[in-house]
Design a protein around this nucleic acid. Structure first.
Lengths: 369, 369
DNA sequence: TTGTATGCGTTATCAC
DNA sequence: GTGATAACGCATACAA
């Protein structure tokens, strides 16, 4: 159910003596009093059904005159629409579940910002959940959301075997994935073109003269971690004389990036990469931590590239060369796609792949030797 | 209404031939079929009321034996709780409105992260809204939330004359402010001790030898902007020989910080401040932008202090000295306080003031001269 | 254009 | 311990 436009002044609440069903009048505070369409109907001397029609502004259903009278009465009585009752009746709610792994991650703040804004402007409200790790809790998240009759779900950063996906599918809840997709095409999704990302990065590093390049890969359970790694390996293998290395970071975190870089630094210097491409900015920042601790200079001794162009990475030392993903367009597309699914449940799963851009800053330079 | 614990396997849905009200069976997809408490009751040969009691696990109301049978049947039929119907009946919902100005701001991601987590663990779901600027929309946000029967609200960064506050009060919705409070004590709130913040900063700068100190103040319409400025003026006036300056930043943004710093730099150098205390980190980062553009070095030429200790400010150049506010404890307290208000609506407004700490990094140093 | 009647799925209050 | 029944507030098909 969409946003209502029941207008009523705040100042005048029950200015007249009105007959409200006594048992309610007794049990509730005046400010909490529940005025229903029945109450409005009684005072306006019309039928509750008419009030319902009038207040929703259905065109051509109720005369201008009675509509105005009803609106007037509703305002005077301080009538407030009860969307819960309406949802029960219509089986339609204006709630969308927005699922995001971690709002502390600077990537997801802006993402949810865009999603919430788009959804709200379309008349929907966002129920935001950060699911716990354990599988049964994740299932329970969907169950709870379903109990609330959410009309649809937007899930960011899903992993392939996430119990939430199966649960949502079983319950038939329309669903759009954002940021990460899946191997299979079961669900609609809006994702970055990771192959293009890697291409941009490798072209840039090769142009600078790098041939030994390392990739600090994100978790393989995520499409972004997997996709960037696969693209890295595929593209590096095509470059004559290039030598690629992959080190796994255990998570998309600064700490994991630190550890991954340390393990890279433990290798023999002669063969070591002169440039590092991190699967995301947090990993890159962790890598910078490790490099600083090891006494290495960036970009003189080693170049570092991130991914995502998170807020503030232009301010770190050195300003990070990174791949910018179109977050705002991503949320717009995801919200729009979900709306299409809600409007037409038979719509088949759709992919939308957005093109990233490279942002060159000061963390990359030609190799020294 | 709190989280339910209706457990049912996902694999077995309607394994038997079951009589479902035919009009529903015809109109709905199998996977969408709505199994109600009545259906369960019919199959389990008990009364719907008994099913309700059994499934909610009310102690001592239904025998162990029938409870197990009912749970079994519910599982087999694929029964799913309808929280909307329950809310309509009980007038209690497990929805909390979480209102935050801007999820793109790195301060609010972590804040909402904490709030959502706390609320979820208490059995509540968070409806997150970023209200538009115009007053009537802000009222409408509360109206819509109220129509959804939210049990309570958490509002971060409220301004004194915000229409949302009046609306919430009129509708009698329990409310806790977080991050910013108000002058008056109408609402419960959880805030930082801004006077302590300023004290920490000024003690630090004085210890370094600074006497000419500028404050890049945030908007006076916010309690944090106002509070920090007032504390700054009050404390500076007590320091013998100190010379304080205040420049207003028009917003808590990087751009506003840039502009404010520029206007400060336009002043005569001899009298210029040797240290700058920004009302928040974003303003500080904007100030750094302006200083770099002006060719001034930080901290050699001028020291800069921020406020909040946002993510990544330890990585910027130079790593920012700033005041850390206990964001996690703030959200914990806010969620806890709201729960107290929900449990006891007669609870008077309560203030909780949390103590910040200073994080000294590389953006501050003794003045040159 | 307006009114009548009914049900959405659940819980609470009784009675048994 | 279990059953019968009446709300909760609203929207909708249909009749008038």
């Amino acid at each position: 159910m969409r946003a209502r436009h029941v207008r009523h002044s705040s100042s005048s609440r029950q200015p007249f003596a009105i007959k409200i069903a006594p048992h309610r009048a007794l049990h509730t505070m005046p400010s909490m009093s529940t005025v229903t369409i029945k109450d409005v109907a009684r005072v306006a001397r019309v039928n509750p059904a008419t009030v319902s029609k009038a207040l929703r502004g259905l065109p051509g259903k109720v005369s201008q005159e009675t509509r105005e009278r009803i609106e007037q009465v509703a305002r005077e009585l301080g009538y407030r629409h009860n969307a819960v009752a309406a949802t029960l009746r219509t089986r339609r709610s204006d709630l969308i579940g927005v699922i995001v792994p971690d709002l502390g991650n600077p990537l997801f703040g802006p993402l949810v910002q865009g999603l919430e804004r788009q959804l709200r402007e379309g008349g929907w409200m966002s129920v935001v959940v950060q699911p716990p790790e354990d599988p049964s809790s994740r299932r329970a998240v969907i169950t709870t959301l379903a109990a609330r009759q959410v009309a649809g779900l937007i899930i960011s950063s899903a992993e392939s075997d996430d119990p939430m996906l199966g649960a949502a599918a079983e319950m038939g809840i329309p669903l759009v994935l954002v940021n990460r997709g899946l191997n299979e095409r079961r669900f609609s999704c809006v994702v970055n073109d990771d192959r293009e990302s890697v291409m941009l990065v490798l072209d840039h590093l090769r142009a600078l003269g790098h041939t030994r390049i390392a990739h600090l890969a994100g978790p393989m359970s995520s499409s972004t971690g997997r996709g960037r790694r696969q693209a890295f390996e595929a593209l590096m293998s095509k470059i004559p004389g290039a030598q690629g290395t992959v080190v796994d970071a255990s998570a998309f975190t600064r700490e994991a990036g630190f550890a991954a870089m340390q393990s890279l630094l433990a290798r023999r210097r002669a063969r070591r990469a002169t440039a590092v491409f991190a699967a995301n900015d947090l990993i890159a920042v962790g890598a910078l931590d490790a490099l600083r601790q090891a006494g290495l200079r960036v970009p003189e001794d080693i170049s570092v590239v991130g991914h995502n162009d998170m807020p503030l990475v232009d301010m770190i030392a050195p300003p990070l060369t990174t791949v910018r993903i179109p977050l705002a367009r991503m949320s717009d597309h995801a919200a729009a796609l979900l709306r299409e699914h809600l409007a037409d449940p038979s719509l088949p799963p759709t992919q939308r792949v957005l093109t990233p851009t490279l942002v060159v800053r000061a963390s990359t330079a030609p190799p020294l030797e």
